[in-house]
Amino acid sequence: MIRINEMFKKLYKISLVVLLAIFLLYVFNEIHDLASKSYLSEHYISKGVQETGAINLVTSVLYDYRSFDTLGEATVILTASAILAFLVPLRKVAMHGTKFLIIVHQTMIFIVPYLAVLGSYLILFGHLNPGGGFVGGVVLALIPIVMTITYCIEFSEYKFKPNIKTLLEDLGSICFIILGLFGIVTGSNFLASGQSNLGLGNPGELISGGLILCLNIIIGIKVGAGMAKIFNSLIKGE
């Protein structure tokens, strides 16, 4: 008897999902015939480089046209790392680390400087080539993560103290808002880097794009500290 009931419940769920699939197929089919208007993106493409000074349009959209989203975004990461740090129990729980050979330690010593260079490249050249604050920050966060995996967590916590990470995160967010207020101080609205009468420099070079470069660095450091804290809290998480 239970088997039939089980079968019936499974069929009920499959039918629900198939119904959803048909509904979505119908919606996509109808939508696909309509011509998709994209006058906003045409404006970004044609005038994006002059208005914001950044070559990489995705970074100019993220850090200048819609930088309020990035502020909300950075708050989500800060809340996530605060939740995970908060849920960690106080007593020490050792992760069942495996004993690695000497080769692993040596390669780890080679990898760390490479990661540092790659991460800072992605952050600093965020507005010139693909990359940006979020990606570069996570690559920078790989350094403490690799240390936690190869050595025990105490070593990585010794090198990058948890307090320093929390301080970096909070300072990063405060600097993000202060840079936003910089827009108000120079007369135009909050978070204005293209519109505030700041020299945008000529688009190709490194120092160009007004505040985008500083915002990139701040978000990079902040995301790096946040992701490293999330990884360590998950490991210490009872």
Binding site: I45, L62, R66
Partner: peptide, 12 residues
């Protein structure tokens, strides 16, 4: 040129 807004939303 591909639309940059949808890639910014994807990144977020």
């Amino acid at each position: 040129v591909v639309d940059p807004i949808s890639q910014a939303l994807a990144l977020t």
